[in-house]
Design a protein around this nucleic acid. Structure first.
Lengths: 319, 319
DNA sequence: TTGTATGCGTTATCAT
DNA sequence: ATGATAACGCATACAA
């Protein structure tokens, strides 16, 4: 493997000059520049990027932490991030955590080790104190509403979004409302649960723990949800479903079992994925690509900022 | 930032000894080891991984090239790759190409620059000659049946899979069969088209170009497909749909428009995604996680190997 | 078991 | 405009 030293010798210049040519710096005579370029051609020279990284202390790599990427919610955010990464000439290093803290810490570790310039955490599992601890090593961007830690965030106000959906159902006459969610823990889940509880207090409705159905992520989980609801003596008349995938699964299952929507049970999905439109599912639209874009831009921005993303209720046929 | 030199001074040993401790080499006295570990604790020392990379000429990073990762086909393969990467302590660098050659070449470039140790190309766009050119710089693994280039491959025999599905439809009495595919170009698409043509020749059926519907990738494309078929004077009685997403979209659209499946049109999907099971769609099962796993293992294996993955027809209600 | 010295390939500083 | 040289932080061959 030839290096700039070899090139320098071949071109009859110093390594500095070679480096200048390589990095398109000014102050190189046309003559010498040509000589260097010639040497590069002749030797099939290839820069060793790791040496550049060491010297610069920067890798142009950005880490992305997410639980799984085979779910539309995250794959869309990732797509938004990726689109911007391409534009800005960054590459992405993926950390699929399955919500395991260790994996997230591994990612933070890579930030500490300078293998990545910044870290985007799409869904956090580790403690905020650990995030804070790693802040000195590079920008960390979170996708949650968070005032307590001094880092950039792009987030949906899930409290507001949930509340909006609940109020909508209330207006439509629903008094027994349940919801389906991926996991019960996590910052966003907590906000939704808070909205749910506050809503019930406001209207003096009883809070029923069995109306909260977790571990619902994928299309096929819709069947599980219908099973559970069917077994209830006093089932909900409406369901907030935090993923259109699951909502669609519920709709399909109900069709199979001759359960009418919205008469027997009303459904509001989330994300407004294409499947929601096709299946005429009322949904809370969340601009995931935009979230991804914002997260990335914050990751490469030295300034710290917070961005709240607005959501929109798309009325369709399942309420 | 403290480095091993500082540690050495602090612990009263040489940098070599520090390095030995860091890398858990033998031949270090308990005493000196403790001294080094102490120094590490005191200084909050953090290794600079880029220096390791430069020194070792290796990054423990593996590149993954795919057109998009918001499609179940690729996100599942990626998941399979990722699972293995975690086990083997590798990180993944993602290249979303949108089937743009430049992006793929960028990935090959990073291999050349030694920023990644190996490259997995899940769906190739660039010329095979370009792949071959980059082979000297590190392992490249392809997901296609390919004898001409000397690299590892894990692939589905799409010719066989397609033929199997076509024969099945033929047995069921179908003589006018169309198919939906993501793109017409590409190695895998070519194999399928070849199977399609061969099948038609064998049974002396006319080849109708309009029966090949491309740019069908996502759920919502199902509607487009139904639109196109509806407009045909002499429409197919069966459709091979190379993604269950699209197949599901077709089924939903047909339900809306009172088109009976399989009476009016039969459907065979691909991948046997969960949605296929839920919607009772006949599908060709492709073990995507297994493919991902194999691709990864080949990427970190110096030996070159080829692995053909078998598929299975899952009979359900759409034929 | 330990340490010295050198290499890894590049960039940055400074002097000329 | 150009070049010498010192970082960058670590691994390792070799000597002891």
């Amino acid at each position: 493997m030839t290096n700039i030293k070899d090139l320098a010798k071949l071109a009859g210049v110093s390594v500095t000059t070679v480096s200048r040519v390589l990095n398109k710096h000014p102050y190189v005579s046309q003559e010498k520049r040509e000589a260097v370029l010639d040497a590069i051609r002749k030797t099939n020279y290839q820069i060793n990027i790791n040496a550049v990284h060491l010297s610069r202390g920067k890798t142009n790599l950005i880490g992305v932490v997410l639980p799984y990427f085979d779910h539309p919610f995250f794959s869309q955010i990732l797509k938004g991030i990726s689109n911007q990464a391409i534009i800005n000439n960054y590459k992405l290093v993926l950390f699929q955590t399955d919500y395991k803290v260790d994996r997230e810490i591994e990612a933070l570790h890579m930030l500490k080790q300078k293998q990545i310039d910044a870290l985007i955490i799409c869904s956090r599992t580790s403690d905020l104190s650990i995030i804070e601890e790693h802040l000195p090593f590079g920008p960390i961007v979170l996708s949650e509403d968070n005032q307590s830690v001094n880092c950039s965030t792009t987030f949906v106000n899930h409290y507001k979004a949930f509340y909006k959906a609940l109020e909508y159902l209330y207006e439509k006459g629903h008094r027994k409302i349940g919801y389906c969610i991926g996991r019960k823990s996590g910052a966003n889940s907590s906000m939704r649960n808070l909205a749910y509880k506050t809503f019930h207090e406001k209207y003096n409705l009883p809070y029923r723990p069995e109306f909260v159905i977790d571990k619902t992520l994928y299309f096929e989980d819709g069947e599980k949800v219908v099973d559970r609801v069917n077994k209830m003596k006093n089932p909900p008349t409406a369901l907030l479903v935090t993923s259109d995938q699951v909502a669609a699964g519920i709709v399909i299952t109900c069709q199979k079992r001759a359960i009418s929507i919205p008469e027997d049970i009303a459904i509001i999905g989330f994300n407004n994925e294409p499947i929601a439109k096709m299946m005429n599912i009322t949904s809370i639209e969340i601009p995931l690509l935009e979230i991804g874009k914002s997260l990335f831009l914050q990751a490469i921005d030295d300034a710290i900022s917070s961005k709240e993303i607005d959501v929109k209720l798309i009325e369709r046929g399942t309420v």
